[in-house]
Deep mutational scan, measured.
Amino acid sequence: MSRVPSPPPPAEMSSGPVAESWCYTQIKVVKFSYMWTINNFSFCREEMGEVIKSSTFSSGANDKLKWCLRVNPKGLDEESKDYLSLYLLLVSCPKSEVRAKFKFSILNAKGEETKAMESQRAYRFVQGKDWGFKKFIRRDFLLDEANGLLPDDKLTLFCEVSVVQDSVNISGQNTMNMVKVPECRLADELGGLWENSRFTDCCLCVAGQEFQAHKAILAARSPVFSAMFEHEMEESKKNRVEINDVEPEVFKEMMCFIYTGKAPNLDKMADDLLAAADKYALERLKVMCEDALCSNLSVENAAEILILADLHSADQLKTQAVDFINYHASDVLETSGWKSMVVSHPHLVAEAYRSLASAQCPFLGPPRKRLKQS
């Protein structure tokens, strides 16, 4: 649940008159999402009104509101027999009622949201009550392989729920002597030191190019640089560091992050930047690179990204790559990247197969709970 924001200063709310007192009302909304995959969808019983329910879910471990999704594969009634019906059901509720908006969509073979439908307002739910769409999607369109909505005969539904909580009022009075504290510009100011090479005390040599930097900042941000300058190493004695395995453009992006906490060109060089972040123990930059690479996972590059993640101990990226390969196994196994990995990294192939087997055979063990970014 997000923290209630402070109200904007009255002088910034309007260029008009300023009242002596004010009130700011925040209506709290808890948002969460749920993904439900139905394997072997074409084998569902086709009687009209037949119901399939998901397991229950909530916004978190401490949330007492429990929900589930309900599907009628062949419609709810005679009117909707040519459609799939989809509903959000409130299973248990400690209150007399709650209000919530919802959005349903289908994830296609690429994991993209399609055929989205959402409620136009927050509906009133009581325990045992459901709301949804009797005519969510035509069955003939859903079952047509050309539309790519049932890869490997799996129907994957994605649901986003927004639950309306209580409202909170914050009130106060205006004073004539309003003090406005300026925003912190530390990142910009440190970035200026790097860009202008002011007050530098060490030189970093990268592929024949020299960059002036500040030992204190490098040591504070990177345990690797800290070790170089702290001990009686040649880098500490000469205040000069030779860097041979990072390209200059990648190095500059890494230094921008060290000084400012930002990497504006990360998406263009996420793979190389991940390697640099791993070498210099820049954990936050490493996770930022993992996130960017996750966003660009595809059938063509899944094997290469899995190898990269394994090489640099990028655990979150590795998990996402394995899950992606499992979901698109029939396509990924035909790529040149996968065939190369079979020869060069057989242990990763074995890991992917083990994960695929456990996903398809849940009876082999208890269900695993899916539970950071600093």
Rank of each mutant, 00 (worst) to 15 (best):
W22D: 00
G208C: 10
W338I: 00
D144Q: 03
M341G: 05
G75Y: 01
L273G: 03
R138I: 13
R185A: 06
C289F: 00
C68M: 08
Q120I: 08
V161F: 08
I137G: 02
L107C: 14
D245A: 05
P346T: 08
H231C: 14
K279Q: 01
Y353D: 00
S15Y: 12
L90T: 14
E183F: 02
N301G: 07
L193R: 05
L157Q: 01
L150V: 07
V342D: 09
S96C: 15
A109I: 01
V30L: 12
N174Y: 04
N147P: 10
R368H: 11
M35S: 08
G337K: 09
R45D: 13
S42K: 03
Y34S: 05
D331F: 01
D77Q: 14
I325K: 01
F104G: 00
D63G: 02
E351C: 09
E79P: 13
K279E: 03
M254H: 00
G191W: 03
K135T: 11
L282K: 01
D201P: 00
P73Y: 03
Y83S: 14
S14E: 15
L311H: 03
L311V: 04
K134A: 05
S336D: 12
K369F: 02
C203Y: 08
K53P: 02
I27M: 06
S42L: 03
F229G: 14
K81A: 10
F125S: 01
P367V: 14
S340R: 07
Y353R: 00
E47M: 03
E145S: 09
R70S: 14
I243V: 01
M117N: 05
F104H: 14
G148H: 04
W22G: 01
T56E: 11
G337D: 13
F32M: 14
R3P: 09
G192F: 11
R138N: 08
T175M: 04
M1L: 00
L297W: 03
K101P: 11
I52F: 08
N196D: 09
S171Q: 03
Q212A: 14
L371S: 15
D144K: 12
D188R: 03
S33N: 11
T319H: 05
A321Q: 01
P182C: 03
A207V: 10
I106W: 15
F324V: 15
S42W: 07
R198K: 14
Y327F: 09
D272G: 06
E334R: 11
E112N: 09
E232K: 05
K237Q: 07
K180P: 08
A321P: 00
W131A: 01
E283S: 06
V349T: 02
G60L: 02
M178P: 01
E334H: 07
Y24D: 12
P366Q: 14
D152F: 06
K53S: 03
K28C: 08
E145G: 06
A357T: 02
N265S: 02
Q212S: 12
K154C: 09
S374R: 12
N196I: 13
L89C: 11
P5F: 06
Y353L: 14
V332I: 02
S358Y: 03
E46M: 12
R139S: 05
P94Q: 08
V91Y: 01
K129P: 12
E145V: 07
F225H: 01
N39H: 06
T156C: 09
E79Y: 14
S197F: 14
S105C: 15
G132E: 00
S14L: 13
S2N: 07
T56L: 01
S358P: 04
V164S: 08
L364S: 13
E232A: 08
V287Y: 07
S313V: 06
P248R: 03
P10F: 11
G128N: 11
C203P: 15
E47G: 06
S171P: 04
K31M: 05
Q360C: 13
A329G: 02
R370E: 04
N72Y: 10
M228P: 15
S119F: 00
K28G: 15
R198P: 15
S222Y: 01
K64N: 11
S162K: 07
K66T: 02
K134M: 01
S42E: 07
K81L: 09
N296K: 06
D144V: 02
S14H: 10
A146D: 07
L218C: 13
Q173K: 04
H347F: 05
E351M: 08
N40H: 05
D144A: 04
D188H: 07
R3N: 02
M1S: 00
N296R: 13
A350D: 10
P5Y: 10
E210C: 12
